[in-house]
């Protein structure tokens, strides 16, 4: 378990005060993610989205706190859990959805064993 480093409390506090919603220099995506987060602060997807934007902005500690909270309220969201695990493993990169510039992070084809039976053709 990680504990906070007491020597840095003041520094963190000041950093947080500096990050109060006055930051005009924040990227629009972070502002948007933050706005969405505060609209639905219990939406794990919104929490995850803000965590990713914070990570992009260099605030890994903030992202970590958010992801822990998301995992706590959505223990069945393995995707969020995976993000937390990646963060804890040292990853600081943020991927994109398939089709975006980052390409296909999980590349493989869908498992055909899971496929539903074929779709019946529409009637004329």
């Amino acid at each position: 378990m990680k504990t906070f480093p007491p020597c840095c409390v003041l520094g963190s506090l000041l950093a947080a005060l500096a990050a109060l919603p006055t930051a005009a220099a924040e990227p629009a995506s972070l502002e948007e993610a933050r706005a969405q987060y505060w609209k639905t602060p219990h939406d794990p997807a919104a929490i995850n989205a803000l965590a990713l934007r914070l990570l992009e902005a260099g605030d890994a500690a903030g992202a970590r706190l958010l992801l822990y909270r998301a995992v706590r309220i959505a223990p069945d969201r393995v995707d969020i859990l995976a993000n937390l695990a990646r963060l804890e493993a040292g990853s600081r990169a943020v991927g994109a959805m398939p089709g975006d510039a980052a390409g296909l992070p999980d590349g493989a084809q869908p498992d055909p064993a899971l496929d539903p039976p074929p779709l019946w053709p529409a009637r004329r």
Partner: peptide, 28 residues
């Protein structure tokens, strides 16, 4: 939280599927 997580390598963190309003209410 705070306990060890299994290692998943160093892949990037990814966006996730959104939730419906009903589910968000349930989460809350």
């Amino acid at each position: 939280a705070g306990d060890a997580l299994p290692s998943l390598g160093a892949g990037p963190l990814l966006p996730v599927a959104s939730e419906t309003a009903d589910r968000v209410a349930l989460h809350e």
